[in-house]
């Protein structure tokens, strides 16, 4: 479990980037973090892997207070994939990039091979192992950096905007990967601006605005909460917008639910006759 308790974070120049955060992430849980650029999302997740240390309050990772541990110690629990893959890549081939930390940790070769193969399979980068990572297109570079972190087999994985620039296949790879990780009991925390992706693949959503967590709820409740939408400057999926404009109830955000609601409405309409004949 990762716990943020009354956490405030200020940069050395005094700028406060996170204020009074309280959050619990359980093992095997999948959580989306949403909110506009500059809301404090990346700063908040960097508190979880101790790249940021709380100015006040505590961050507890599986019983370890991050104030009392080193970043290296916490990295055994929490893997973080940077928003910009180029901040993370430095080896000359994709395979070397994925294996680098495993070798650094002096794991035996059999274990290295197993972990590399699994990470490569989950991220779909099999065909690029011999290439220089910087020659691989942006969307795939992101998957290389994800593979590096997956190979560490940490119980918690943070993905910072993995959906940026991904096509349909990339989004599918991501969702399959999150399913597989969750099946293994690992937690996935994802920052994203893709609201359709959030609606389709997450039940729990944390919305941030102005350095704070303003809502921690199910995806449908978040996307039907007008105040949260306004404050976090997010946009609900189009299906939700249509349901709202039609005055339908039930916090609909998925196509099948909208089709069902319209079909029920039609049946009720036909059964009851119409008073609206023109």
């Amino acid at each position: 479990m990762i716990e943020l308790k009354d956490v405030t974070f200020a940069y050395p120049n005094g700028y406060i980037a996170n204020e009074n955060l309280n959050l619990v992430i359980n093992n095997g849980e999948r959580v989306a973090i949403i909110g506009q650029n500059g809301a404090g999302k990346t700063t908040a997740v960097k508190l979880m892997n101790r790249l940021n240390k709380p100015t006040t309050g505590d961050v507890i990772v599986d019983g370890n207070n991050t104030k009392e541990r080193t970043t290296a110690q916490i990295s055994a629990y929490v893997g973080y994939v940077f928003q910009n893959p180029d901040e993370q890549i430095f080896n000359s081939t994709v395979a070397m990039e994925v294996e680098y930390m495993l070798k650094y940790r002096k794991l035996d070769q059999k274990d290295i091979d197993r972990r590399r193969d699994r990470a490569v399979e989950l991220t779909g980068i099999q065909d690029y192992l011999k290439m220089n990572p910087l020659d691989v297109p942006y969307s795939l570079r992101k998957f290389i950096t994800i593979a590096v972190v997956l190979a560490m087999e940490t119980p918690y994985i943070i993905l910072d905007e993995p959906t940026a620039g991904q096509d349909l296949q990339g989004l599918k790879t991501l969702s399959n990967m999150m399913d597989a990780l969750q099946d293994e009991g690992r937690s996935v925390i994802t920052i994203t601006h893709d609201m359709e992706f959030v609606a389709d693949h997450f039940t729990r959503v944390v919305a941030m605005a102005n350095k704070q967590i303003i809502a921690d709820d199910t995806a449908d409740n978040i996307f039907w909460n007008a105040e949260v939408i306004k404050e976090a400057r997010i946009k609900e999926p189009q299906i939700g917008e249509i349901a709202k404009e039609l005055g339908l109830k039930g916090n609909i955000i998925h196509r099948r639910d909208l089709v069902d609601a319209l079909s029920h409405q039609k049946k009720a309409f036909i059964r009851g006759g119409s008073n609206e004949k023109e």
Partner: peptide, 19 residues
């Protein structure tokens, strides 16, 4: 592997249900 708008998919699903 190419997305189409979610409202287009909605349209197809409604047609499949004879709406």
């Amino acid at each position: 592997g190419i997305s189409i708008p979610s409202v287009a998919l909605l349209g197809h699903e409604m047609r499949e249900k004879n709406m």
